[in-house]
Computed example of a mutant assay.
Amino acid sequence: MKVAIVTGGSSGIGRSAAMQIAARGNGVILTYSANRQGGLDTVAAIEKEGGTAVALPLDVGDTNSFPAFHDAVFAALRDTWQRENFEYLVNNAGFGQMAMFEDTTEELFDKFMRVLLKGPYFLTQKLLPLMADGGAIVNTTSNSALVSGLEPGYSAYGTMKGGLIVLTRYMAKEFSTRGIRVNGVAPGSTRTRIADDAFERFPEVIPALAEKTALGRVGEPDDVGKVIATLLSDESGWVTAQNIEVSGGYNL
């Protein structure tokens, strides 16, 4: 059995990725921040299907917490799977918030940077000693950093996700000496809890988004989670340094 770490596994794309990875016979360490119950619910759903999972708290915007998280991962690997390393890492945890360029504060910009770019960078650095050679990493980027997804109000968010796309390529280059593959998945509009449950609070935006999508609907978490699980698997063993848009053809 191989083991994956999935950050932000308490809901949405992270929850789907955790479940899809577990369904392929892998163990999962998933993280949660404010939504502890969601993390426990994901573990319960995986266990119901015969899988094995552990939920750990993590704030990816607080690099000071990473040494303790490293130790918690080591303990979970030892106690649950009787091993000292893991094979897969999914840097997924994040948040989204719309703010027009002229309304974007330094506080919001810095928070985006800490959570969406600095966090994945230094969390991966901290966990690399526990990662097995020949493993794989998937970073959840966004089509807001691509021409197809450019929309007003996402300049800061998209900038950090663009940085993550570049970081993905550098990770792939540097980690290749250990046989570790690194790819990005860029979701389009996906029905998650992003932006404080925006889809629940503003359901009227869904038809407009679906109309702009070639395949005629808004994405669901499983649309992205399945791609993440596939990129980690041996089926994608010759794929690295790629950023794959998973948007159903948004603005196609």
Rank of each mutant, 00 (worst) to 15 (best):
L58Q: 00
L123W: 07
P67S: 11
M171S: 03
G162R: 11
Q20L: 07
I228W: 01
S11A: 15
W238F: 15
A75L: 11
A172K: 01
F202I: 12
A75K: 14
V115E: 11
P152L: 13
N85T: 15
R36T: 00
S233H: 09
V182T: 13
G249P: 03
G248M: 03
N139P: 00
R114H: 12
P57E: 11
L117F: 14
A241P: 00
T104H: 04
E200Y: 02
G25N: 02
T192N: 07
T105V: 12
K48D: 15
L123P: 02
G163N: 13
M98Y: 08
R114W: 06
T141N: 13
Q37L: 05
R36V: 00
N91W: 06
N85Q: 15
G12F: 03
L123N: 05
S65G: 13
A55F: 00
A18S: 14
D103A: 11
P67G: 10
Q97L: 15
K118R: 15
T192K: 09
I5V: 12
T52R: 08
K126T: 12
E102K: 11
L164W: 04
L146K: 06
E106F: 09
Y250T: 02
I137R: 00
Y88V: 09
V3L: 14
D222S: 09
E151K: 14
K118F: 08
R169K: 15
G38N: 01
E151H: 10
I29R: 01
V185F: 09
G158H: 08
T213K: 01
S233G: 14
I5H: 03
G158I: 02
T168R: 07
E235K: 11
Q37G: 02
V182I: 12
H70T: 14
A76P: 02
M171H: 07
G119I: 02
P129W: 12
R83G: 10
K126R: 13
D59T: 06
D103E: 15
I228C: 01
L108T: 08
V239I: 15
V185T: 08
S142F: 04
K48T: 13
A34H: 02
A156D: 10
T63W: 06
D110V: 08
T124C: 03
R201M: 10
L150D: 03
R181L: 13
L146G: 00
T124S: 09
R24V: 04
S65C: 10
A17T: 13
T42R: 03
L40P: 00
G179V: 09
M100P: 00
S155Q: 12
N35R: 05
S236R: 05
A55S: 02
T141H: 04
L252T: 07
A214K: 03
A195Y: 10
I180V: 14
S10D: 13
G248Y: 00
S16W: 07
I165M: 15
G249A: 06
E200S: 07
I206V: 15
F66Y: 12
S16H: 09
A210Q: 01
L127R: 05
I180K: 05
S233R: 13
I137Q: 01
D110L: 13
P129C: 12
G153A: 13
Y88C: 08
R83V: 10
S11T: 05
K118S: 10
D133Y: 04
S189G: 07
V227Y: 05
V43D: 00
